[in-house]
Amino acid sequence: MTYEDRDLTTAETDGGSRSSVSRRPSRGRAALPVWQETLLLLAGALVLAIVIKALFVQAFYIPSESMEPGLVKNDRILVEKPSYWFGGTPARGDVVVFKDPGGWLGPEDVSQASNPVTQLLTKVGLYPSGGHLVKRVIGVPGDVVECCDKQGRLLVNGKAVDESAYARPGGNGCDPGTAGVCYGPMPGVKHWKTPPVPRGMLFVMGDNRAHSADSSYHLCTAAETDCSDSPWVASDLVVGKVMAVVWPASKFRIEHAPDSFDEVPSR
């Protein structure tokens, strides 16, 4: 056995000073104080939250009863953004969150939280934000939307759409002789029809058809001679598609687009 072998054996088996020296802490960089590590972790979490909000998922709350019965006022929802990446656009039936096209929101809808902590959490996506609208896409570019057939159903490109699974109809507003419900009520108007939806635009409606200031509400009718409203929502104002209801916990569910529009022909 060489000198080096004897020395190694002694260091591995001897519980004395040699073994203690072998376990001496390295002379590398000293550990950060706990408070500094905590600040770094918080900063990293904030950066991650901002990235997630900007690119992937954002939390919102429902501001009104316009999307009942499915989405109730003050429900918390998650909106996903990747579906509309790389040229993807909203499809008929999608429930989308979008920025105000101009004058659609009232003062109470654009008010911001006064609590500084809540404001910060909202900005980084950790608290549901307001100031946006939530509606269902009814018409995409080229579509013509019309109210209504004899059963009170909307027509999209001449095809009646059965929305009874998710929409709440109004009790009037359709042509005389309908079944007593109307999925496109407009005060004082029995029948309405849109021009083709322009390129880059959408025609949207709330599911609570008698209580939603949506595209049909802002539609200029043939009887109006001085009308500057626009019923369209630009696709680039869309933040994303509703993917889930997360609060109240008893209502948690994943949202899926209905098949109501599957047979609507393109124009």
Rank of each mutant, 00 (worst) to 15 (best):
A113F: 12
V137L: 06
V264R: 10
S129P: 13
P185A: 03
R24A: 15
L126D: 15
A11M: 11
F98V: 03
G200M: 03
E255I: 12
S17W: 15
Y183C: 01
S212T: 04
D149G: 08
S26P: 05
V233C: 01
R209G: 02
A59S: 15
E263W: 02
A113W: 10
T38N: 05
L133N: 04
S129L: 10
E255M: 13
G103I: 09
D94Y: 06
L48N: 08
K53A: 13
M1V: 10
A43S: 11
R199A: 14
A213E: 06
G171E: 08
A31Q: 08
D143G: 01
S17Q: 14
A249R: 03
S66Q: 05
A30E: 14
S66Y: 01
P63N: 07
L39W: 08
R199I: 05
P198D: 02
N74I: 10
Y84M: 08
M205R: 07
L219Q: 05
P90Q: 01
W232R: 05
E224D: 03
G188W: 01
L39I: 11
R168E: 04
K53V: 07
E4C: 03
V95N: 02
V21L: 15
G88E: 04
G142W: 15
S266R: 04
R153C: 08
W247F: 08
R153L: 05
C227W: 03
A249K: 04
W232G: 01
T118A: 14
L32W: 15
R76P: 13
D236I: 09
E12P: 03
K123Y: 14
W192G: 01
V134R: 05
Q112P: 01
G206R: 06
V134S: 05
P169E: 14
E37S: 13
V134Y: 06
T118H: 12
E163Q: 09
G200Y: 03
I254S: 14
T225N: 04
G131H: 12
N74S: 14
A49V: 00
Q36G: 07
K135T: 04
P258Q: 06
F98P: 01
R18M: 15
E65W: 12
P63D: 13
C147K: 03
D100V: 02
L202I: 05
A249D: 06
Y166T: 09
G28K: 12
R253V: 02
P69N: 11
R76T: 09
I50R: 06
M201G: 02
P128S: 11
K53Q: 13
P90S: 01
S215V: 00
A234M: 07
P198M: 04
S111C: 08
G170M: 00
M186G: 00
H256I: 03
I62M: 11
V21N: 11
G200N: 00
K135P: 07
P231F: 06
P176C: 07
F98N: 00
V21Q: 15
E255P: 10
P25S: 14
V246L: 05
V117W: 04
P128I: 14
E146N: 12
L120H: 05
A165K: 12
E108G: 09
E80K: 03
S250D: 12
V137N: 07
Q151D: 15
D14I: 04
N208K: 06
D5P: 00
E65I: 07
G93E: 10
